[in-house]
Design a protein around this nucleic acid. Sequence first.
DNA 1: CGTTCATATGAACAAATATTCATATGCCTA
DNA 2: TAGGCATATGAATATTTGTTCATATGAACG
Lengths: 102, 102
Amino acid sequence: MPTEDKEARFLQCIGEPTRLRIMKLLAGGERCVGDIVSALGREQSLVSHHLRALKDCNVVITRQEAQKVYYHLASPELAEIVLKSESLVTRLSLCQNGRCGE
Amino acid sequence: MPTEDKEARFLQCIGEPTRLRIMKLLAGGERCVGDIVSALGREQSLVSHHLRALKDCNVVITRQEAQKVYYHLASPELAEIVLKSESLVTRLSLCQNGRCGE
DNA sequence: CGTTCATATGAACAAATATTCATATGCCTA
DNA sequence: TAGGCATATGAATATTTGTTCATATGAACG
């Protein structure tokens, strides 16, 4: 299993709009599932599935407190790379035209 | 169309093993399609499809010379972010277990 | 215990994706 | 202009992915 496969999995894992929003939220500190759900305004089940995807890739870490489960980024560098790619997308005008995916 | 959507498209675009390999190749300077095909050892048609995906996202730029078409990265920062994510994946042990995608 | 709250899971489905195969385009040279 | 390279395109297919719905787990507290 070459290195590129894991790297691709990682990039694909964070390369999804809902998961990106979750990561940007967590960049501001840990949040419990309920907080994330109301911040995103999406279904609890959907958020839970995405959190699992992030956790399976070791992008986030969980901590349980009573009934609540708190999520935080595995490293501040993950927030950095998200910000860096955001800046790249705007500065280089990446993925603006309709041909790109859509 | 929120910013996260474009960012997600970008990350998803580069988050594919074959496209990652192409980008790492192009990090060493421009290459024509034939060079990329033989470097990767994959079908010409497949490489062409992936090159198109990269081009549609403005990640690569083309230059035609006679029958050959040369591709290069739109910015050296694209090579940087690929390297940075590679280093993150190894240092943080991201996407190692089988649950992650597979 | 039974109930309520917080989160996770699993099946089902639609949409997106990577790959292959076959064919088309475009540029050069004899 | 005919033929050969180099690259691109399009249809077809199998796999993966995101989302929803319904239900399950598990912790607290009466």
